[in-house]
Design a protein around this nucleic acid. Sequence first.
DNA 1: ATTCTTTATCGTAATATTGCAATAAGACAA
DNA 2: TTGTCTTATTGCAATATTACGATAAAGAAT
Lengths: 108, 108
Amino acid sequence: MGLTKTDNFTTEQNELAAFAKALGHPARVAIIEYLSSQNDCVCGSIVDAIPLAQATVSQHLKELKNAGLIQGNIEGNSICYCLNPEKWKKFKQMLEPTFTHIEQPVCC
Amino acid sequence: MGLTKTDNFTTEQNELAAFAKALGHPARVAIIEYLSSQNDCVCGSIVDAIPLAQATVSQHLKELKNAGLIQGNIEGNSICYCLNPEKWKKFKQMLEPTFTHIEQPVCC
DNA sequence: ATTCTTTATCGTAATATTGCAATAAGACAA
DNA sequence: TTGTCTTATTGCAATATTACGATAAAGAAT
């Protein structure tokens, strides 16, 4: 198969999975970390910062954009990729119950 | 290819990606949500709660275990799968910089 | 010992992902 | 227009993932 059965799960579960999946590759983690630490969002800078070919980085950026974790804005000659605060807030909020749950002692 | 170039990235980046990837499927999200909300960790209960075949759920549990997000303990006749607090704390901690970053105004 | 219950593994088919070279597409400059 | 710079897309090969039936493995119960 290889086809995820999304119908069996809630919209929220699918959305959280989509966020997590988008972050589930070290190159995409590196892109997000770059955008979180640098005051620089130019696509070319990201490509330079990630040790993969331009075509590959572009593909990863597309996946992050599809998941909604980043958004692209035209900035003169190039494109500025920024974090999407709304989506990240939602991501955080959906993880919160588990983050809270692990504060109490484990069951076994 | 289909082969992730992990060598190009830091251990931390790879670990965060592994956590996220493990959570990147609605069935595994559902499993984690079940363990976060129920005081029940018995493998059989998880299988019943997830609308997929037993073999498939077992496979998803294995992936969560490989990533370290859950741990399995023998509990009499069955197996108890619990969240691994240490790993979840690390996961949370690694996401923190981005969660913090989105609190300030976006660059564009 | 045999049977039942519970969980893991194997085998297989279908689909998805990763990576890159080559190339296209778009905006700007001269 | 022609060229240049920046980013996206295409095409392809290699590998990974998803799903499930069948079956194995290990312990409990009879």
